[in-house]
Amino acid sequence: MNQFIQLLSKPYITIGASLTRIGFGLLLLYFYGIHYAQRGYLWGPNGVIDFELFQSTMIDYNSFSLYGLSASPLFFEIIFHLGLIFAFLYTIGFKGRFTSIVNFILVFSIHERNHLILDGGDNVMRIILFYLIFAQTTRFFSVDSYRRQITDREVKTSFVSSSLHNLAILAAVMQLCIMYLNSALYKVMGEVWQNGTAVYYTLQVEEYSLPFFRNIINSSDLIIALVTYGTVIVQISFPFLLFNKRTKYFSLILVVGMHIGIGIVMGLFTFSITMIVIDLLLISNKDYIKAFSFIRSKIKNIKFSKKRSSKDEGTVSEG
C-alpha cells in the first residue's frame, strides 16, 4: 500500500497530457470554425432540429444542454461564441482547471444540440475531455506554465492533485482499450468481418469513401481480406500490447497507421486525428524528452550544414 501511495504521489505523463490538451483544443476550434457560417442552421433555434422537440428530448433523456435554455437567437449566439472562446483558452492552456470544466460543459452542450453530425471520434473526445478535467494539462506549452516561469513559482503538486492526475490519465487509457476491444468484439460477430469482405462493403458508401481508393482496393481480393482481418487484429491486440514498452510502440505504429488509412480513404479525418491525439497520452515524459532532444539535434545539424554549404558556395563564387 505504501508503495502504491508513493506511485500516486508523482504525476506521470504530464507532457502527453499537455499535448493532448492542445490537440483537442485545435480540433474543437476547427469544429466551431469550419461550421461558423452554418452555425444557426446546425445548432440554432431556427435550424435543422426544431427547438421545442429538442427541449422535450432533453427532458426524456435526462440530458442537459446550454443551447436548450432559451429559444432566443441572441442567446444562441452568446453560447456558441463562448464555446469558441473557451476552446481557444483551452488550447493555449489559460487557467487550466476552470477552463477545462467550462469547455467541457460547452462541448457537451453543442454535441447534445445536434447528434446527427457526430461520430465515434466526438464521442470518445467528449468522454476523455471529462477525465482530463482531473488531470494536470497545463504543465507544459501553456500560458499557465509561462506565467509560472516568469513569476518563478514552484509547481506545487499535492498528493490529491497528482493522484487525481494519474488516475485521469489511466482512465483515458482504459477508455481507449475498452473502445478498441469492444469495437473488435462487435466486428468478430459480423458475417462480413468473418469472411473477410467487410472493407469492400464499407468502401461502397458514397457518403465517405473516395472512388479513387475504392477502385484500387477493390481490384484485389487479397487487399480486401488483409485489410479486413488486419483491422480486427490491430484492434483486439491493442490493450495487450500496451503492457510491454517495446510492444507498446509497435501497437502505436499499427493503430496510428490504421487511423491514417481511415482518415484518407474514408474521409473521416477528424475522427482519425482525434484518435491519434489520444494516443499521445500513451508516451512517457522520458520518451518525449528523448524524442525532443533528438529532433533538436537534427535541426541543429541541418542548420549547421546549411551554414557550411552556404559558406562553401560563397568561396566557390569568389574563386
Binding site: Y61, N62, S63, F64, F108, E112, G120, N123, V124, I127, F130, I178, M179, N182, S183, Y186, K187, M189, G190, E191, V192, W193, A198, Y201, T202, Q204, V205, E206, E207
Partner: peptide
C-alpha cells in the same frame, strides 16, 4: 443506463457487426 447516460454515453459498434454499406 442511469449511471452512464448522458455523461458517459458511448457506442463502439464502429462499422460492426454489419458495416453500413447503403447509399442514402
Amino acid at each position: 443506463n442511469s449511471y452512464m447516460q448522458p455523461l458517459f454515453e458511448q457506442n463502439w459498434q464502429l462499422f460492426a457487426p454489419d458495416p453500413l454499406s447503403n447509399d442514402f
